[in-house]
Design a protein around this nucleic acid. Structure first.
Lengths: 206, 206
DNA sequence: CTCTTACGCTACGAGCCGTAGCGTAACTGC
DNA sequence: GCAGTTACGCTACGGCTCGTAGCGTAAGAG
């Protein structure tokens, strides 16, 4: 989690895990109140009751600090219960993802970090492993279940299966993000249902 | 376009439209080279060969300047030729939107502005009218055509029609944006075709 | 020709960044 | 214990950007 200098050190005073926690939490709080643009390292340090230099000993830049602070939010929701049908599973994953995006600290930060990642490959890699791939697992899981139930055909070759998974993931995640952040409308059960109906119908013809 | 003080002035030296142009263009260029975070007003002014004070006479903040600079990019692609079928029309709108997003000045800026808009209602309104609604018109146009051709049923009431249009728009725009910016994969003709197949199949069952 | 407004330029206080230097705290190995 | 090593808090600093003020000049309107 503290990426900058992770030398396999063995002697000397160890880093305070408490400080790690406090800094990440302070970062999320500051994001909610101030937003990405006005968030300052000095402010985060003050909230965490930590010296500014301590921040810089762990994170090289504001970008990386924020990515880690946000990524921690995605550690929770990694399970998706089997709801019995493809339709229900899609509604479930949509609602979970939406619930995550509704949280004010996620909204602002995720988009800002994605924006920055268009110019920073290291950041993109970090986001991919910390956030995107974890969400994608849910999609793969849902498809697998649907194929077991016979709701969806199995792809003939691995390449097609991979392309389809990517497509489905972009459609689901994209729609939820766009609805939440651009259209700025809530993702409720009805919307999830309508979206899932649309998607399931499309998937069955693939 | 220059939002700050738009008093119905009639006397005195008029504002230089040339300066407007130069500033917006310089802003886009700076965005490509520096990104949102490192873009400075001083730098934009220097690129536009304009005094920094001239920027502040027109735009109150960096946010609004960037929104206007990006919005200008969306003024072009507002037409969508009738390609003969719903499938082809969707592929067309996807490819057009993707082409816009592929431009480096759009990529970074659009996401950054969206991120900031989660905390700034005025900014969100501005984005909506300048960018979102214009793209949405294309969706409405495509649906209208498909209904004329008999490819899609007409909605029974206006409320349902509105909800459907919103849903479709979020799916299309969201998928393209997510594919381009988060997955960081190109939107080519094959992807557009596969996506359109999926969506058309779903739409016909709505 | 006067009035009014825009422009370029310079200068400025304020705030934040990221780093350096110091003394102190915590933990390890002898 | 004691020395060695690393983390921490604190202070101070140069450098950069912000956004504004003040001035003299440029450009249309009446």
């Amino acid at each position: 989690m503290s990426p900058v200098p992770s030398p396999a050190r063995r002697t000397g005073r160890p880093r305070s895990p408490e400080a790690d926690r406090a800094i990440l939490e302070a970062t999320r709080a500051a994001l909610v109140e101030l937003g990405w643009g006005k968030l300052t390292m000095g402010d985060v340090a003050a909230r965490a009751r930590v010296a500014k230099t301590t921040l810089y000993r762990r994170w090289a830049s504001k970008n990386e600090l924020v990515v880690d602070a946000v990524a921690a939010l995605f550690d929770e929701q990694l399970e998706l219960p089997d709801l019995g049908s493809l339709q229900a599973d899609i509604e479930g994953v949509v609602l979970r993802f939406a619930a995550l995006l509704e949280r004010p600290e996620t909204k602002t930060a995720l988009m800002a970090v994605v924006a920055e990642s268009t110019r920073d490959d290291a950041l993109r890699t970090r986001i991919r492993s910390a956030i995107v791939d974890r969400q994608k697992r849910l999609v793969l899981l849902g498809r697998e279940r649907a194929q077991m139930r016979g709701e969806l055909p199995r792809e003939e070759d691995a390449a097609t299966a991979g392309r389809n998974a990517d497509l489905i993931f972009d459609v689901i995640a994209g729609a939820v993000v766009h609805r939440t952040l651009v259209s700025a409308e809530p993702v409720g059960p009805e919307w999830a249902r309508e979206f899932a109906v649309l998607l399931v119908a499309g998937l069955k013809t693939l």
